[in-house]
Design a protein around this nucleic acid. Structure first.
Lengths: 136, 136
DNA sequence: AGCAATTTAGTACTTTAGTATGAGTCCTCT
DNA sequence: AGAGGACTCATACTAAAGTACTAAATTGCT
C-alpha cells in the first residue's frame, strides 16, 4: 500500500517531466505531437503492466517459483528429489519404481533417506513440508 | 496469446483515434496539449493494469477459493472432510484420532470411505486429487 | 587413478495403512 | 414411529510403508 503511493507520486512526476519535454519539443519543432503522444501512451501502458505485476507477485510469489537453494541446503540428491515429486503426485513405491525403472527396494531407500532429510515421519508429512518449503 | 494480439491491435487503434482527437483539438485550440497528454497517459496506464489483471486472474483464479460445491457433489460428510484435511496436513491415523478425540478405528473407517469417494487408492493420491479439485 | 557421494539393491523386520464386515448410537426427515 | 444417514468402534485380515542394516556398481571431482 505504501509502495503504491510512492509509485503513484513518481508517476505524476514522470508525467510532469514528459509534459515539459513535449512542450520544449513543440517549441523547437523537432518532434511531432503524434510521436510524443505515442511514446507517452506506450510508456504508461508498460508502467501500468509493471505496477500490477509487482503488486500481484507479492501475494503469490511464495507459491510460484521453486526454491532450488533450499533443495541444496537440505542435501537432497537429484534422485531423491525426483522420487519426492512422484511421492507428492500420489504414487506408491511400486508405481514409482516402475516409472523410474528401478526396484521397489531402491525407492524405499530413497524415500527413507528423504524423510530424514526433510525431518518427516511419513510421506504425507514430507509432502506438506515440501510444499511449505516451496520445493515442489 | 491470441487474445494478447487482439488487445494490442485494439490498443493501436485507440492510439490512432487519440491522435486524431488531439490533432483536431489542437486545430480548434480548445484543449491544451498538456491535458490531452495527461489523459492519454492515464488511460493507457489503466489499460496496462487492466490487461495484466485479466491475464493473471486466469492463472491463479482456480487456486484461491475452496470449492464447497464439489465437496457436496462428492458426497463427503462433514467428518470425512475434517479427516481429509488432517490427512493432507501429514498426520497419521493415530495422530488424527487423538486430535479429534475418537479411536483409530473410526479414522480408518473415515479414510477408507473418503478414498472411495475421491476415487483414490492411497491417502497421498487423495491429497493430490483434493488439491486438484480445490477442496483443501 | 582414487576418493567421496550417489545410486542401486537386497534381506529381515516393525509399523502404518487400508479393506471387509458387523454392530450400536444419535439425529433428522417424513 | 421408523427409515436412513452419519458417526462411532471393534475384529481380523492383507497390503503398503518405513527402518536398519549391508554392499556393489556408478559417477563426479581432484
Amino acid at each position: 500500500m505504501r509502495q503504491t503511493v510512492v509509485v503513484f507520486s513518481l508517476l505524476i512526476l514522470a508525467l510532469l517531466l514528459l509534459f515539459q519535454f513535449s512542450k520544449y519539443s513543440l517549441i523547437s519543432g523537432d518532434l511531432q505531437v503524434e510521436y510524443i503522444m505515442a511514446f507517452v501512451a506506450l510508456v504508461f501502458l508498460g508502467i501500468g503492466i509493471f505496477i500490477n505485476k509487482k503488486t500481484q507477485k507479492q501475494q503469490s510469489a511464495s507459491s510460484k517459483t521453486l526454491d532450488f537453494k533450499r533443495i541444496e541446503e537440505l542435501g537432497l540428491s537429484k534422485r531423491e528429489y525426483e522420487v519426492l515429486k512422484e511421492v507428492a503426485s500420489g504414487l506408491s513405491n511400486q508405481e514409482i519404481a516402475k516409472k523410474l525403472f528401478v526396484s521397489e527396494s531402491t525407492i524405499k531407500t530413497h524415500v527413507s533417506n528423504l524423510l530424514v532429510k526433510l525431518n518427516a515421519k511419513r510421506r504425507t508429512q514430507a509432502i506438506q513440508i515440501s510444499k511449505d518449503l516451496n520445493i515442489i
